[in-house]
Structures are given as C-alpha cells and as structure tokens.
Measured scan of single mutants.
Amino acid sequence: SAVVMEEGSPGEVPVLVEPPGLEDVEAALGMDRRTDAYSRSSSVSSQEEKSLHAEELVGRGIPIERVVSSEGGRPSVDLSFQPSQPLSKSSSSPELQTLQDILGDPGDKADVGRLSPEVKARSQSGTLDGESAAWSASGEDSRGQPEGPLPSSSPRSPSGLRPRGYTISDSAPSRRGKRVERDALKSRATASNAEKVPGINPSFVFLQLYHSPFFGDESNKPILLPNESQSFERSVQLLDQIPSYDTHKIAVLYVGEGQSNSELAILSNEHGSYRYTEFLTGLGRLIELKDCQPDKVYLGGLDVCGEDGQFTYCWHDDIMQAVFHIATLMPTKDVDKHRCDKKRHLGNDFVSIVYNDSGEDFKLGTIKGQFNFVHVIVTPLDYECNLVSLQCRKDMEGLVDTSVAKIVSDRNLPFVARQMALHANMASQVHHSRSNPTDIYPSKWIARLRHIKRLRQRICEEAAYSNPSLPLVHPPSHSKAPAQTPAEPTPGYEVGQRKRLISSVEDFTEFV
C-alpha cells in the first residue's frame, strides 16, 4: 500500500504489510482489554486508547508507543517513533504512522508483537499521559499493580500540603484535648505513684524565703500560729474566702420596643432579638451553673441549684474572672410580681450592659438600685453597626469618660462592650471603697496581704499580753509611738528610695 506524505515531511518511507502472525497476537491482546472507555466527539468514531511506554525494544532499544483501536470491530496495532508526526486519522481507513528506516525489517515488528510479559508489566506500571491515566485505574490494570491496600497518609489540604495544625504542634487546635488526655493517663497511674504529687513543697518555699535578706529584721520574721485558738483558725479560714484573682460581676439587660421607661417590662423579658443573642455568645463562655464549683469559678452570688437559672456566661484571663448576670437567662416566676429574684442580683451590680433595642433613649435610673454606678448603652444600628456610649452617676464623672461614643461592628461589639464594662467596674470598686478611707481597694491579692498582716499583728499583741517580758514586734495601731529626735535631713532622693524599699516589703498600697 502507498502512503501520501504530508508537506514538509521527509522522503517516502516504505511501509510494510503486517504479517498475519502479528495480527493474531494483537487480536488476542485486544480481546482481554476493556472496550468501555469514554466516548469521543461525534466527528471521530468511538475508540479506546491506552498509551504504553516501553523502555527498550528487543534487539533495537527504541521507545515506541502502542495504540489499540477497535475500529470496525477489528483491533489494530500502531507502532510509531515518538519524534515523528502521525498522519491524519479517518473512520474509513486504518491508522497509518511513519516509521524510521531502522524499523524497515519486518522481523523487528514480529519481535515487538512478542514482547515478554516482563516488558508489558513494566510498561503498564509506568506513568501514563492524559486520558490513558484514568483508564489505567480500571480493573483491567489491577493485575499489573501490587496486591494489598496502599499505606494511609496524613490529611492533605486542597493545595496538596499538610495542614498547619499537623506541622506545628504548639498551634494545633487540639492541644488542650491532648492535655486532658495526659491528665487522664496520670489519673490511671499505679498505686505506688499515687503518693507522688507534682509541684513545689510549701515548706521548701518557706525555707528559701526565711533565709532571704527580706527577713533580716525582727519585724519581718515569720511567727508560728497558735493551734489552740479558734479565733485565729477562723481568720485563716476567712483568708480562703478572698480569692487571689480579681472578680467582676456585670449585669446584662435587654430593652425591647416600648420598654425604655418600664423597669418591670425590662426585667420580665425572657429572650431578645437575634443580634442580641449573637452578642451574648461573644461576651464569654456559656457555663452550666450546676456543674460549677464556687471555689474555682466566680459566680457573683448565683445559685447553683437552679434558683437563678441553669446557664450563664463568664469570662476570665490570667488575673481576673468576670460573670454576667443576664436577665433573660434568669427564670421569670409568676409568684414574683416585682421580679425581686432578678433584681437582687442586677440591682447590686456596679455596672450594667444595656442592649437598647427600643429605638428610644434609655435613662440612668430606670433600673432603681443603690449600686448602679455605670451603664454601657448598646444601640443597634443599620448595616451591622452599633452605637456604644457610657452613662454614669455624677459622683463617678471624674473616673469615667462619658463624652466619647463609639461606632462598632457586630463582630467586635462583644469585645468592646466587655472591656468598657470591666474598666468601669474597676473604677466603681475604687469609688465605692472611698467610703472607708482606711481600706482603699487596690486588688484582691493586696486584700489578702492586708488580712495576713492584721492576723500577724493580733498574734503579736496576744503574745505580748500573755508574756509581758516579750517586746511587741508591731505596736498596736491605737498606741502612739514614742517621740523621736529629728534626724539629720537627708537628700530627698535617698528618703524616697528608703521609703520605697520599706513599702515594698510591708505593703503595696502607695504604689497603687
């Protein structure tokens, strides 16, 4: 048969007729292969192709491409040299491709048809291009793949890379869960390890502090508590009631339409708007009261037996805890006409967050109470924005700035309102402590230090009264110190430094 060459192609190359033996071998191979691939376009007849790359030819070592076609129900084999250009295909004639002069020997084609199974398996396991790669995943090629499931790999992101949580363990979102698992493993320790309690022994800490320079003076030496005195035992138990972190309780009120001037209507609300609910979820963490331990979680007086509701929101960081007394989460009882059960919590909070959804101005004093010092007013606006402002009593104007209003988005509203309420509550605590000038409020841990110092002074006084020969370590507060001759004046800087060093040991009130 003659071949018409394309323009620009090399000279004529004689194409030899395939021997009958080659056709029989390739026909047997075509019957084993699956003929249901995917359909081509209507211009080209339905056909199945599979590209198999052999590394070497037997005796020649030339890479070839073998295409199996099922045109007219008769499979045909096409061998081509890759750099050459194939002729145009037609549905009426068999596929013809040019070969190099080196394939002119018909014996070479017979060798190609009689490829060993080793070469076929190696060509099938190679990388296939384009559409033949999808075909190689079918059941027909499963014989050339190794048996057994593939090893499982770690989760992959859409980009093909490992997620960040699997790369950096410290930033993994499941870090707290692993800590819980470690605690569970520790709890399952053997009885021999049960006595080993991690941490620092208080006796060891005391020993280090006792021999430090801070205890060089007799006034700073630790003293032993009497065991037989019940009054001192009660004082030590009272110390446990003062937490070592700051605590805040903040009221949250929802004002519906037409309720801006009605205290009873505001306290009777059992739910609010959708934006109000989203605002609550951002204030803190939802907790169930019956599962809380009052000595570990500050509840601000809420009952854990269901008297004040089942849930509330709280927030904490390293040095403070805040609980929100939310009116809509507290039960509304029919027998309580004046809502006294709610007001006994909300009316005693220094700061209230008022979500004013009424469309009218909310005035300070609508919720009557002796300790309502500051109101954080949240007014929802259009386009997911809110107006946040402050209202306070006249005696609080020096501590709280009420002249600045803020426009905040719904997303950042819980954070801004919480921070403003916490700052206002700190100012309210300082303002409330002014009624007792001898006990200015600095912080909870300073209050613990003052309680310890008062307890020490009482013990020293009782020891001096029981044994008059012992001198008083600290003179009583009601006694007057003996007159001392004025010492020589020293520079102001040295006096300030000495006073600062003494105050650092005794108390921190002056620095606050």
Rank of each mutant, 00 (worst) to 15 (best):
E218Y: 09
I223T: 09
I223P: 08
L224Q: 15
L224C: 15
L225I: 14
P226D: 15
N227M: 12
E228V: 09
E228F: 07
S229N: 12
S231M: 10
F232I: 13
R234L: 11
R234D: 15
S235C: 15
Q237T: 11
Q237M: 12
L239V: 08
D240C: 04
Q241R: 13
Q241M: 12
S244A: 13
Y245H: 06
Y245K: 14
D246A: 05
T247Q: 15
H248C: 15
I250K: 00
V252C: 02
V252S: 00
Y254G: 01
G256P: 03
E257K: 06
S260F: 04
E263T: 03
L264T: 15
A265Q: 09
L267F: 08
L267R: 04
L267G: 04
S268I: 02
N269I: 01
E270V: 05
G272A: 03
S273M: 01
R275E: 00
T277A: 07
E278K: 11
E278N: 13
L280W: 02
L280Q: 01
T281F: 05
G284D: 03
D291V: 06
C292H: 15
Q293D: 14
Q293S: 12
D295I: 03
V297F: 15
L299C: 11
L299N: 14
G301T: 06
L302E: 14
D303S: 14
D303M: 03
D303F: 02
D303A: 07
V304N: 12
G309Q: 11
T312K: 05
T312W: 03
D317Q: 03
D317A: 02
D317I: 00
D318I: 05
D318R: 04
M320C: 15
M320F: 13
M320W: 14
Q321K: 12
V323D: 08
V323F: 15
H325G: 03
A327D: 03
A327Y: 08
L329R: 06
T332R: 07
T332A: 09
K333Q: 09
D334S: 14
D334M: 13
V335S: 13
R339L: 15
C340T: 13
C340Y: 15
D341F: 14
K342H: 05
R344I: 10
L346A: 05
N348L: 10
F350A: 03
V351H: 00
Y355W: 03
Y355F: 04
D357V: 01
D357M: 01
S358G: 04
S358C: 03
S358V: 01
G359V: 02
G359A: 05
D361C: 05
D361V: 07
F362A: 02
F362R: 01
K363C: 11
K363E: 11
G365K: 06
K368A: 14
Q370Y: 13
F371G: 15
V374D: 01
H375C: 14
V376K: 01
V376F: 00
V378E: 00
T379D: 06
D382E: 12
Y383K: 03
S389H: 12
S389Q: 15
L390T: 07
L390I: 06
C392M: 04
K394M: 07
D395K: 04
G398H: 11
G398N: 06
V400C: 11
D401P: 07
S403Q: 11
A405T: 15
A405V: 15
A405I: 15
A405D: 13
K406S: 15
I407F: 05
S409P: 02
D410M: 00
R411F: 06
N412Y: 05
L413S: 04
L413C: 15
P414Q: 01
A417T: 11
R418T: 10
Q419V: 10
M420F: 03
L422K: 00
M426C: 03
M426R: 01
M426K: 01
A427E: 01
A427G: 03
H432W: 15
R434F: 08
S435P: 04
T438P: 07
D439H: 07
D439K: 09
D439L: 08
I440Q: 08
I440V: 12
Y441L: 14
Y441S: 14
S443T: 14
K444C: 06
W445H: 13
H451V: 15
H451W: 09
L455D: 13
L455P: 07
R456L: 05
R456P: 15
Q457L: 07
I459E: 11
C460F: 12
E462D: 13
A463R: 07
Y465F: 10
Y465V: 13
S466M: 13
S466Y: 08
P468F: 10
S469T: 13
S469W: 08
L470N: 15
L470G: 15
P471K: 10
V473Y: 11
H474G: 14
P475A: 12
S477T: 11
S477F: 07
H478S: 14
A483Q: 11
A483C: 13
P486R: 10
G496R: 09
G496M: 10
S504C: 08
V505W: 07
D507Y: 14
F508V: 14
E510D: 13
